[in-house]
């Protein structure tokens, strides 16, 4: 019984890995003040392109690279249209989301149901023999290790390096960053492309591992991108919380599967989609803290309680101040 639970939880960690990577990519993009709404499309398109690349070459690495390249390309299109051509980030992001989705179904049509190489788990020597933790974290595929690694790396990158500081400054107050000699739009270009490349890596993780192959609209990836966006935003642009959100989401999905048998009253189809609304609703209520009425409401409470809830002077969960706002130097 206990080992079943362990296997289940290890599965949660594995199936959350693409979401973790994509959400961290989107976090990086949004930290620079750019909103990339095309995540859902990028994941689908890169899942398709990564699968075809791996199928054609028989090489997994080629698949992952193709996925990242696809993402980077879409990221560049977004940055070009919004920064250079000054179009709305929301409009371009949405169009790209729809375009990439349909493009993936269209181009992937010929490759439906083919078998591509699949990434197998590689237990890490010694570490995988640690009881419980070993089978949870260290008996996984390299991509899962990468997703686990991406959390501390992005945290260190954002908070402990010069480049992370530049990234945060651009997203918070671009005009002040400019006054300190930072090329704001170049930074935004870079992080939009980098973030989208990470989102693009999530695609092949699905199509070459978790859900091997390409099955068009039956692949079941449509919608994941919106979850990624929601997790990024409601996770407060903090890689650690964002990753936590991803694990929570997959945990819900797993529970849905487990209880499918026990909860006979609820149709299984509902249990399968339930984690999506559940996740988003949860995150939405968490986000309510940012509303003005919340602040004015808790200011009526006694000071210690007020200080506990108040976001003033903490701002940990607040959006990068310039998110979605273009920067032009006159």
């Amino acid at each position: 019984m206990q080992s079943e639970l362990l296997i289940g939880l290890a599965g949660v960690i594995a199936s959350a890995s693409p979401i973790v990577i994509a959400a961290i990519g989107e976090t990086l993009t949004e930290k620079s003040g750019m909103l990339n709404l095309s995540v859902n499309g990028i994941i689908l398109l890169s899942a398709m392109s990564g699968f075809i690349a791996a199928y054609d070459t028989g090489n997994l690495i080629a698949g992952y690279l193709a996925g990242m390249l696809t993402g980077a390309l879409i990221g560049w299109v977004l940055a070009f249209c919004t920064i250079t051509l000054n179009q709305s980030q929301v409009a371009v992001g949405l169009v790209l989301a729809f375009l990439c989705r349909d493009l993936s179904y269209f181009l992937g049509n010929d490759f439906m149901g083919f078998n591509a190489p699949v990434l197998h788990s590689t237990p890490l020597p010694f570490l995988s023999e640690i009881p419980i933790l070993g089978s949870l974290f260290f008996d996984q595929t390299p991509m899962v290790y990468l997703s686990l690694l991406s959390i501390p790396v992005s945290l260190v990158w954002i908070n402990r390096t010069k480049f992370g500081l530049i990234l945060r400054s651009v997203g918070e107050r671009p005009e002040a960053a400019f006054a300190r000699g930072i090329n704001v739009n170049k930074v935004r270009y870079l992080y939009t492309i980098l973030g989208s490349a990470l989102v693009g890596l999530a695609g092949p993780i699905y199509s070459l591992g978790l859900k091997p192959g390409w099955k068009g609209s039956m692949t079941g990836l449509d919608g994941i991108g919106w979850i990624v966006l929601a997790i990024t935003i409601f996770g407060g642009w903090n890689p650690f919380r964002v990753a936590l959100g991803a694990y929570l989401f997959e945990l819900l999905r797993w529970l849905g599967l487990v209880y499918q048998i026990k909860l006979t009253g609820v149709p299984s189809q509902v249990l399968q989609v339930a984690p999506f609304p559940l996740m988003i609703l949860t995150l939405m209520f968490v986000n309510m803290k940012n509303a003005e009425w919340f602040e004015s409401f808790i200011s009526l409470l006694p000071p210690p309680i007020y200080r506990f809830f108040s976001l003033k002077g903490k701002r940990r969960k607040a959006a990068p101040s310039s998110l979605g706002i273009p920067f032009r130097n006159v």
Binding site: R160, T161, K162, F163, L165, I166, R168, S169, E172, R173, E175, A176, A177, A179, R180, G181, I182, R315, A318, S321
Partner: peptide
């Protein structure tokens, strides 16, 4: 022209250092 949402340390540090790690 500073960054209200960053820490005082980050504000002082930003923009002029060459090293990779802070």
């Amino acid at each position: 022209l500073d960054f209200p949402m960053l820490t005082i340390f980050d504000n002082l540090y930003l923009g002029r250092r060459k090293r990779f790690f802070i």
